[in-house]
Write a protein that binds this DNA or RNA. Structure first.
Length: 192
DNA sequence: AAACGGATGGGCT
DNA sequence: GCCCATCCGTTTG
């Protein structure tokens, strides 16, 4: 994906990332997933890691659009974000779920399950299945071993916009997007 | 079908 | 110490 794609508004990017492909290349092989669920985290957003300013942990969130922000959560899982907006503003899009496209055997091996629906249907699951680690924090997603490639935009009628999952602050904001009816979305939202 | 608790470690008060 | 942008196995209704 070219760099201009990441310079739009963060909400717009969260929406237009749906349907795009995430490709990971490691020594074990190639794996590809289609993005089916995202969440936006903005600079004036109490639910965002960037809300209280730049720290060592969230520093990459304040870097430049088109880079990866990867962090450790609950001591055992990584979450993968795309940095968006303007350099240094502290906004990003969390990738919450993918649909398996290629490298399914490798994903099954990494996830230690055969269940297709359980490979990529959550932010911690997909980093495990795709081999995304803390070492990917700050990498450029336009090229290299971890990248996002362009696909046609979906129409608004195929997209659901609703509230985010797993946070307490800012949980009323409609910053979550997913592909309507897609079976790989992590879960339905609480408030309808 | 929903609710619960344990795993597990870095960062912040 | 306590809090997490989570997941999984187990228990309960």
């Amino acid at each position: 994906m070219k760099s201009s794609f990441y310079k739009k508004s963060t909400l717009e990017i969260a929406k237009s990332l749906l349907g795009k492909y995430l490709i990971s290349r490691t020594e074990s092989g190639v794996s590809i997933g289609k993005i089916v669920e995202t969440e936006a985290y903005l600079s004036n957003d109490p639910g965002s890691h960037s809300f209280k300013g730049k720290t060592k942990r969230n520093a990459q969130m304040f870097s430049s659009p088109g880079k990866a922000y990867v962090y450790l959560i609950y001591g055992m899982y990584n979450c993968f974000n795309v940095v968006t907006g303007v350099d240094g503003i502290g906004e990003a899009v969390l990738i919450r779920a993918l649909e398996p496209i290629k490298g399914i055997e490798l994903m099954q091996k990494r996830r230690k399950t055969k269940e297709i629906k359980n490979l990529l249907s959550g932010p911690g699951k997909l980093t495990q299945a795709m081999g995304i680690a803390i070492s990917h924090n700050g990498v450029n997603l336009e090229k290299g071993n971890l990248k996002i490639i362009n696909k046609p935009n979906l129409s608004d009628s195929e997209i659901i916009q609703t509230t985010r999952i797993g946070i307490s602050l800012g949980n009323k904001l409609p910053y979550r997007f997913y592909i309507k009816g897609n079976p790989f979305v992590s879960r339905k939202s609480k408030n309808p």
